[in-house]
Design a protein around this nucleic acid. Structure first.
Length: 704
DNA sequence: GGCATGTGTATTTTT
DNA sequence: TACACATGCC
């Protein structure tokens, strides 16, 4: 028996791995080997004779799950581990609901609305109910979705959510209620679930008397990563899942809780002993990632937090370099400084892949990206706008979603409106013609869990009694119609659509077919269609790896390709590239060299979050997360001056202030430096004063 | 009435 | 840059 992997653990980690039955909470600081501990736990459980398929490993991203499974695989030297149920709450919910959803009246061919789709649906309702032209200001689709989502995820009343987080929308409460009602109805009529529904339905499922027991007992052990970033509904799910079997291990770090906008709450960690009786708690404090210098600065940062945290990380790694705070004249200089440092490290042998640039908001890297391109430094960007959010990619997925779920009105609406002369009204009429209901009354019978035959539904009507089409759109519509029908034609498609499993390679074939009819529309609507066409080819390439259309669509929705340039061209294996990432997306990652840019008040903390203490505390934790990603070298960059063209006020620039988090005490653990070797004479340090008016001036940049 | 087109404006973080 | 809204065209 090869238990060699246990020898690599320290005493605390080992206790966690070898913990017996019952609930366990592990408080694991940054870089304390959390991932390895979880992976070992998985390996250990399997070695103890627990079937891999009886282990549920809930992580924050799909990638985290697969990393751990691979590690466990290596430890055991076998691929037994593959059948572990690993993934995000949402992905697991999707999988379980396909199996057990019928128990709560869900047809198994439901499709999932991503954030954009959900917003579109809300917007549609907002228009239908006449709130778009109301005299009083009414919340927009994104705000509506945020309110809805927060209410669901925090499991709290609409009143409370409005009052606490959206006070400026409180006046519209009645209308919001009306919209939410319709939203719920329409989703059910269309056989679609949004992200929140996945959790909501899973929770309901887990709480059912009989099926809930079956679902819960299916898993002997439940392991949860990043517990500090779970929300109330997720905690409810876990309690539902552990009514009969009490084995649960949750791992988290209260100092790294950065998802309160998704209603995540540290309370889940604090309340763990109440939620799971008999729970034990352990703490991991030895950091293996960073040098003591990086930890000193990070620990000091957290000392200022409103709440005191009990952990203090220590490292036994040999002394390294002090973090560096670089003051730059302005943003262009910041870009130069970052590039210079990156290349310096590269020349000293640090691969680009072992370096990362981190920032608060997706667009903070815009200028840097231009400079990187100019200097021909390859990079992949994580977070921010994604491949999947591009209009043309969404169009193609809408085609596929209609094939999967012909009642998906959001997708129909999207597609039909691509046609010339077809807007919301005509599209709705056409949908009614083929039996896709846009209102709240259910069209198909979704109860009973019986799968719809592909041709018993709108697609049959599309084939046998096509709707009337405006003449300008006739040709293009006919193209779409034939393409959709071709995709479902058994003679062309190796048996077509049986139980959602199409014959091998069919999804890719479908995309290829659909692209034919989409191409002319595509070229009419979008410019730069060359670039966009490549995206569609890429989509087809990804689809080639899938057998089931349903799986493909679900994966693209729940776990879309995270890096924009992942898809830019054919992947070259030994290609070296720099990582750009939002801090949120950098969670759980580590790099040899970390560059944090825009460490200025208004950026970090974001002035969107400086309203209350809690918000500011979370921003501080964000900087903490960013800093603790560094293994050996940590750089913080701060531009003194921001140029702004948008609000033409004064001379077009204003002075920023160093982030309030980088206090004198924190600075005392850093080396201070100018941004660039060239052009330092441009820096007028005398201007850097603690003046209120300066601060206000900066704020005016983003406000008003 | 309904759609295409132009203009202005606001842009955190993600499953 | 993408979206919401207003205007003008069929």
């Amino acid at each position: 028996m090869s238990t060699r992997y246990l020898d690599d653990l320290n005493a605390d980690q080992r206790r966690a791995v070898e913990f017996g039955d019952g609930p366990l909470l592990v408080i694991a600081g940054a870089g304390t080997g959390k991932t390895r501990t979880l992976a070992c736990r998985v390996a250990h459980l399997i070695e103890q004779g627990i079937g891999a398929e009886r282990i549920l490993l809930l992580t924050f991203t799909r990638r985290a799950a697969s990393v751990m499974v691979r590690q466990a695989e290596r430890m055991l030297g076998s691929d037994d581990v593959r059948t572990v149920w690993g993934g995000t709450f949402h992905a697991v919910a999707n999988r379980l609901l396909h199996v057990y959803g019928h128990a709560i009246g869900l047809a198994p061919d439901f499709t999932i609305l991503d954030q954009g789709d959900a917003g579109d649906l809300l917007n549609l309702i907002r228009h239908d109910l006449g709130f778009a032209k109301a005299k009083t200001r009414f919340p927009k689709k994104q705000t509506l979705l945020d309110i809805y989502s927060h209410t669901v995820n925090a499991q709290s009343s609409l009143d409370a959510v409005l009052k606490r987080y959206f006070p400026w929308c409180a006046h519209a409460k009645d209308g919001i209620v009306e919209i939410f009602e319709a939203y719920v109805d329409r989703k059910s009529a269309q056989n679609v679930l949004d992200f929140d529904d996945l959790l909501l339905f899973w929770k309901a499922l887990s709480e059912l008397p009989e099926v809930g027991d079956v679902v819960g007992r299916r898993f002997e052990h439940v392991l949860v990563d990043e517990y500090q970033d779970t929300n109330s509904i997720q905690s409810g799910i876990l309690r539902g899942m552990r009514r009969n079997v009490s084995n649960i291990m949750a791992v988290g770090d209260d100092a790294q809780s950065i998802y309160s906008f998704r209603a995540a709450t540290v309370r889940n960690m604090l309340d763990f002993p109440d939620h799971f009786s008999g729970a034990e708690t352990m703490t991991l404090e030895q950091n293996y990632r960073s040098t003591q210098q990086v930890l000193d600065a990070s620990n000091t940062l957290m000392e200022q937090a409103g709440e005191r945290y009990t952990k203090n990380l220590f490292s036994h790694r040999p002394a390294g370099h002090r973090p560096v705070l670089l003051t730059c004249a302005d943003e262009p200089q910041q870009c130069n400084a970052v590039c210079d440092r990156i290349l310096e490290h590269r020349e000293r042998g640090v691969m680009l892949m072992d370096q990362a640039v981190l920032f608060r908001a997706g667009h903070h890297s815009a200028e840097l990206e231009v400079e990187l391109n100019r200097r021909k430094i390859p990079f992949h960007k994580y977070g921010g706008l994604k491949f999947i959010e591009a209009a043309h990619v969404k169009d193609m997925l809408a085609f596929l979603r209609i094939l999967e779920n012909p009642f998906d009105a959001v997708s129909w609406l999207r597609l039909l409106q691509l046609l010339t002369g077809v807007g919301p009204q005509i599209a709705s009429r056409m949908m009614r013609d083929i039996g896709v209901r846009t209102d709240s009354r259910s069209a198909g019978d979704c109860g009973g869990g019986r799968r719809q035959e592909p041709f018993s539904t709108p697609l049959a009507k599309l084939r046998d009694a096509p709707p009337v089409v405006p003449s300008a759109a006739r040709d293009e519509f006919e193209g779409i119609r034939l393409a959709l029908l071709d995709c479902l034609d058994p003679s062309r498609n190796h048996g077509g659509n049986v139980d959602g499993i199409s014959a091998s390679g069919t999804v890719a074939v479908e995309i290829e077919r659909l692209r034919l009819c989409y191409a002319p529309i595509f070229e009419r609507i979008y410019d730069k269609s060359e670039m966009r066409l490549r995206d569609l080819e890429q989509l087809e390439l990804i689809a080639a790896g899938y057998q089931s259309r349903g799986r493909f669509i679900a994966d693209m929705t729940l776990d879309p390709p995270s890096s924009t340039s992942d898809l830019a061209g054919p992947p070259v294996l030994d290609e070296d590239y720099l990582v750009l990432s939002t801090i949120h997306s950098a969670k759980g990652c580590e790099w040899d060299v970390v560059h944090i840019i825009h460490v200025a008040d208004g950026m970090l903390p974001s002035d969107m979050s400086t309203g209350d203490e809690e918000g500011i505390d979370e921003e501080r934790r964000l900087l903490y997360v960013a800093m603790t990603r560094a293994k050996n070298h940590l750089y913080l960059y701060f531009p003194l001056r921001y140029y702004h063209t948008k609000h033409r006020r004064g001379d077009g620039h204003s002075y920023a202030q160093l982030s309030r988090f980088v206090s004198p005490k924190v600075r005392s653990y850093m080396n201070l430096g100018g941004g660039t070797k060239v052009g330092d004479d441009d820096v007028d340090t005398s201007i850097r004063v603690d003046s209120k008016s300066v601060r206000d001036q900066v704020r005016n940049l983003w406000r008003s």
